[in-house]
Amino acid sequence: MDASTWQPSRAQPNWLVRLFDYKPFLIFICLLPACGLLLAFLTYPLGLGIYLAFTDTEIGGNGEWVGLDNFISLMDDRIFLTSVWNTLFYTFTATVLKFGLGLWLALLLNHQIPFKSFLRAIILLPYITPTVLSAIAFWWIYDPQFSIISYVLVDRLHILDHYIDFLGTPWAARWSLIVANVWRGIPFVAITLLAGLQTISPSLYEAALLDGASPWQSFRHITSPLLMPILAIVMTFSVLFTFTDFQLVYAITRGGPINSTHLMATLAFQRGIPGAQLGEGAAIAVAMIPFLIFATFFSYYALGRRKWQQGSDND
């Protein structure tokens, strides 16, 4: 009798607590906010985007299923084809430059130098400031009349005799955008690779030095293989975000002159939101997906393979 009266009195006020201590329920509750947000605002839109690409939806209206029509018309669309070429060229060139210069900067910072953490902090500034706002600064630096670069080259150094029209011709504009992208990307590459460099044990370099290895040899045979796993991940992210870049181009050229610098993302925006052709915009966005999957697999497996060849665990 004691037991029967005692038990409920303890269980009763605690049923909620007990429910929350029931593991399957607790797991469900814990995962609910994150998974709910991601399913509602990421997975569902991703599927919806693929569906929209096969319709002729416009803003504010329901579209009809048109099959591959959007993609077929894009195939004949010179502006779209230019944007694909631009995106590939932009991604490739910017990635090569970012990683070349970023690795160099990381190696420089890996030396014993004064004010190292201060340097590291200010080097990250381009990465943390809002991209659009630094892009506006580049826009001003690229001004045809008052460009400071032109001023230095023409009026101070007398290397050129006329001001450069940075954004007026397609190729000049493409390179100007790449320079702005590289400027913004170097800090991320340098700081993450620096972290990778610092995990390499100094004793390996000491051993190589004793064996008479040249600096290049120790870079080639110690630094680069040990840096590969982290390089693969950083490169995957970098390629992914460069390929889908939007802000820089939208802020500096808006795709001009005459639609020659559009990336796929900016073209998708132009057609989809101000142009109100949601279906066509979605088709352009969906056309990026195969490239992204390829780039991700390529950079991850081609570069990261050494990691599981060595059999190290994933930490």
Binding site: A40, P45, T244, M264
Partner: peptide, 16 residues
């Protein structure tokens, strides 16, 4: 999910 860039999502998300 981190590998899905906003540039792909913004059009359908606008509709959502």
């Amino acid at each position: 999910a981190y590998l899905v860039p906003p540039s792909i999502l913004f059009i359908p998300l606008a509709q959502v």
